[in-house]
Simulated scan of single mutants.
Amino acid sequence: MESDVNDVIVVGGGVIGLTTAVTLAERGLRVRVWSRDDVTATTSAVAGALWWPYRIEPAVEAGAWALASLRVYGELAADPERTGVRWVPGIHADTDMDGLGPWARQVPGLRRLSAGQVPGPYGAGLAARLPLIDMPVHLAWLRDRFEAAGGRFERRAVTGFDEAAARARVVVDCTGSAARELVPDARLRPVRGQLVLVENPGIDEWFTAADAGSSETTYFFPQPGRLVLGGTAEEGDERLTPDPATAAAIVARCARVRPEIAGARVLGHRVGLRPARAGGVRIEAVPLPGGGRLVHHYGHGGAGVTVAWGCAERAAELACG
């Protein structure tokens, strides 16, 4: 009979949960992931997934986590077909270096552009070659890497952490938006993101124009077999059904930058709820009855992919401490 002894149970199978589970398993711990959904059905699977510290706090810690993750993605990009990670050039419109944190000075090749170098109705911007992650491929690769390290992935819904705590000395809460009810944490708020997938009309660079104070963003990411168009950042909106008017507006905004997008055949629509949290990411250990430990690790908003590896190391330190 297979042993049911665990050192750690990670609750949540999105990019934060899987990256944390990989980090723990590769430290030699016996780790299980309990996930309500298959990895390709999580919120993470919907992400456009360009590395960039977008709408995430606390700023200083997030910058360090992002840079740590950038180093890992740089290594993973050596095998893009397996890992889903590629280096892709592109432009952040209406973004200036002075408005970014100290982390920006450590991004190789990040440079200013003049207004004439930025397409569409935008002023100056920044250019860079950054990791762009094909999330369905990357999530499946993370699960395979986790299992190769001895971990076990289980489809399992939870209504609290007591059951996991009865079967492992450490429980890591990577439940994202679900932590609002499970913890509970009233600081969590969903930020709705809607995307449109179209046939790629020949675009090989990414583009973003994202005003942090607006619910509308404009971006497109060339992924294998599709071009991902976005998007929205609608706080407090929990609708999971794509809105046709929103989709049409997304296509129109992207077409103002690259007109050929207007005629691209639509392949599908995606909606995800980013797990944003007032006060920023929570990575904190609290004691459990009987001497165990619960490590909360959620609230990454739309930057979970960007900070995943750096945050996972911090969560692993608390889990092993």
Rank of each mutant, 00 (worst) to 15 (best):
A303G: 09
A248S: 12
L24A: 04
A68K: 04
D204I: 11
P121E: 11
R36V: 06
L130R: 00
F146W: 08
P108F: 07
L318A: 00
A255R: 01
S44I: 05
A78I: 08
G268M: 04
H296G: 05
T40R: 13
D7W: 06
G321H: 13
G263Q: 15
P121D: 09
A245E: 15
A248L: 10
E75L: 12
T20E: 03
R111Y: 11
G230M: 06
S114Y: 05
T306N: 00
R187T: 11
L76Y: 01
V33G: 07
G101C: 03
W103V: 01
R152T: 14
D4N: 14
V107N: 01
R258I: 11
P53G: 04
A124M: 10
L50Q: 03
R112Y: 04
T95I: 10
H92T: 06
W309E: 00
L139G: 02
M1V: 15
A316V: 01
T218W: 03
L229T: 02
L182A: 09
A59F: 10
V33R: 09
P275F: 03
M97E: 11
V172Q: 09
P224Y: 08
R270N: 12
A47C: 04
P190I: 09
A245C: 09
P287E: 12
A77Y: 02
A68R: 10
T23F: 04
E26A: 11
P224N: 12
G151F: 06
E238M: 10
T232N: 02
L110P: 01
D204F: 12
L195Q: 06
G160L: 06
W87I: 10
A140V: 14
R145C: 12
S214Y: 10
G90A: 06
R270F: 13
V266D: 06
H92A: 15
E75W: 09
C311H: 05
R189P: 08
I16F: 07
E61K: 12
V88T: 15
R143I: 09
G301C: 03
A127K: 08
G14P: 10
I9W: 03
W87A: 09
P119R: 02
L182I: 08
G176K: 07
R192C: 03
L130V: 05
A168M: 13
R112H: 12
L130P: 00
V22W: 01
W34G: 02
V172P: 07
L240I: 13
D98R: 12
D204L: 10
G291C: 13
E260P: 04
A212P: 15
L76H: 02
A157L: 13
R293Y: 11
T43W: 07
G301E: 00
V307E: 00
I133R: 00
E26P: 13
G263W: 09
V170K: 01
R55L: 15
C320K: 11
A312Y: 01
L188W: 01
R156F: 11
R169N: 08
T208F: 15
S69W: 00
G302K: 01
T19E: 04
L142T: 08
V295D: 02
D4K: 15
E205S: 13
